[in-house]
Computed example of a mutant assay.
Amino acid sequence: MDILRYVAFSTDPQGGNPAGVVLDATGLDEAAMGAVAAEVGYSETAFAVPRPDGALDIRYFSPKAEVPFCGHATIATAVAHARRHGVGELLLHTRAGQVTVTTSAQPDGSVTATLVSVPPRTEELAEADLAELLAALRWSAADLDPALPPRVAYGGARHPVVAAGSRERLAGLDYDMAALDALMARRDWTTVALVQRESDTVFHVRNPFPPGGVVEDPATGAAAAAFGGYLRELGLIAPPAVLTLHQGVDMGRPSLLTVGVPADPSSGIEVTGAAVPLP
């Protein structure tokens, strides 16, 4: 088994989000995948099994559990696959559904990938859940941006979206990991998307990830897709639109995610980023 290590949503190995990638996990069972992910220790490791038609079956494991979809590990897998087999379009069969990824070579020699998520949707966030979530975050209702209402957003995995009213509030992340982990387990939330709007199309983002055994994710493609769907469904942007998400800055691993939001409400959300191998 060849375990590759990539960083996604950055061209600098010191930035972005590290992911493990196994391009051929044929024969590995769920227990083995979980053990490898725990040993690798990144927030996610992707396990791909080639199909006869050239597509890949893919599963994603954190050090603690399997998740239905992971954006940064998808970007890392697509770039690793492109470096080995050439750039182009790749179809992934995930637990959340089919995801298409297109890779392209850049003039500087890097490779970028664009995934198209499954159709997103947005759900109400119950008042009791919001109160418990804010208590675990050690935030109050006064810390929130009323222009971006709390919701649960889905783009392959479920993420509550909570908008901070200021960049300072977002930067001061100090939450109760055990309490948040328990709430997220009960509600089947993968990460929490904490966002702050700088302008119409530029956002700062942080993603606590206690269910994966990780305090914070430096770049979260699945949450970015869900967030793009949230903004479109609630009429908070004018699609088609291209969003710029800055993540990982406050934890010293700056990441850049570009999110394309088509006008068609049934279309998946496009998430683009670079990936480079870790030395």
Rank of each mutant, 00 (worst) to 15 (best):
G41V: 07
P18R: 00
Q247T: 06
L180A: 02
M251W: 00
L28S: 00
A275D: 11
T244F: 09
P240V: 05
F209P: 03
Y6Q: 05
A25R: 01
T201R: 12
S117P: 09
A136S: 11
A182N: 13
S199F: 01
R232C: 02
A19F: 08
M177H: 15
A38N: 07
A128W: 09
P68F: 02
P211W: 00
A96W: 02
E198L: 09
E30D: 14
G41M: 09
L183A: 07
S104Q: 15
P50Y: 00
L243R: 03
L234A: 02
F47W: 05
L130Y: 11
G27R: 01
P68G: 05
A8V: 04
A31I: 04
V118R: 00
V259K: 02
D145S: 10
V276R: 03
P149E: 04
S140P: 05
L256W: 14
A223F: 01
A153C: 03
G235I: 05
L134K: 08
T102N: 12
R51C: 08
D145R: 10
A171Q: 14
L194V: 04
Y154K: 06
L28K: 07
G155N: 07
G212A: 03
V215K: 15
P150T: 09
V49R: 00
P211T: 11
E127N: 10
L278Q: 12
V259I: 06
L56A: 13
T94M: 08
L91W: 06
L23Q: 08
R95K: 13
A222W: 01
V242P: 13
R253Q: 01
M251Y: 00
M1E: 14
P63E: 07
D250G: 07
